[in-house]
């Protein structure tokens, strides 16, 4: 067991890249990703766990990056929006967001994309009521949600069709 300190060295993978840094232990994962790694797609909308703008995937599950400390990511696998598009080709979710006009100002978008990534990875169904409930932890002030729901439903449906 390491001795308690104000700083700690961590090593983890982000979007497939290994990073090793010393971090102030009080720094949240969100601030670390944004400020130390310069990956600013992960956004801060409330810093107290309600808005979902900071949602990232840690070890396969969506989490609030504002409610996790960077030191806690030591050894973990983290994915952010920067890891979605491959070689500048939009991912199916990103493409569906574009096609369905699922964003206006775009500030909430990263959080919705990552929540939807979790849903897609766990084979969630495309039933509208269920999708709406699953999105209840992400606030969007611009779109009124309908197009977000449609975009995500389209991807989940396609995925289900492929599985069959």
């Amino acid at each position: 067991m390491s001795t308690p300190g104000f700083h700690q060295r961590i090593r983890f993978s982000i979007n497939g890249r290994i990073v090793e840094r010393e971090v102030p232990v009080r720094q949240t994962l969100a601030d670390f990703i944004r400020d130390a790694l310069g990956l600013t797609a992960t956004r801060l909308g409330c810093e107290h766990g309600v808005c979902g703008a900071c949602t990232v995937i840690v070890d396969g599950a969506s989490v609030r990056a504002c409610l996790m400390l960077a030191v806690q990511a030591d050894g973990a696998e983290v994915r952010t929006v920067e890891g979605l598009a491959q070689d500048d080709e939009l991912s199916p979710l990103q493409k569906a967001f574009l096609d369905h006009h699922a964003l206006q100002c775009g500030f909430c978008t990263s959080g919705f994309l990552m929540t939807a990534t979790d849903l897609a990875a766990h084979g969630a169904g495309s039933n509208e009521t269920e999708i709406r409930e699953a999105l209840s932890g992400n606030l969007c002030r611009c779109t009124g949600y309908a197009n977000l729901v449609d975009a995500i439903a389209a991807v989940l449906k396609e995925q289900a069709a492929k599985r069959e």
Binding site: R34, A41, T80, V81, E82, L98, H101, L103, G106, L113
Partner: peptide, 21 residues
Amino acid sequence: VRRVEDPRLLTGRATFVDDVR
């Protein structure tokens, strides 16, 4: 017409004020 704003917002490359370094 689809939005030209979207690609940068969807890939996290937009510059909101807190993204200015």
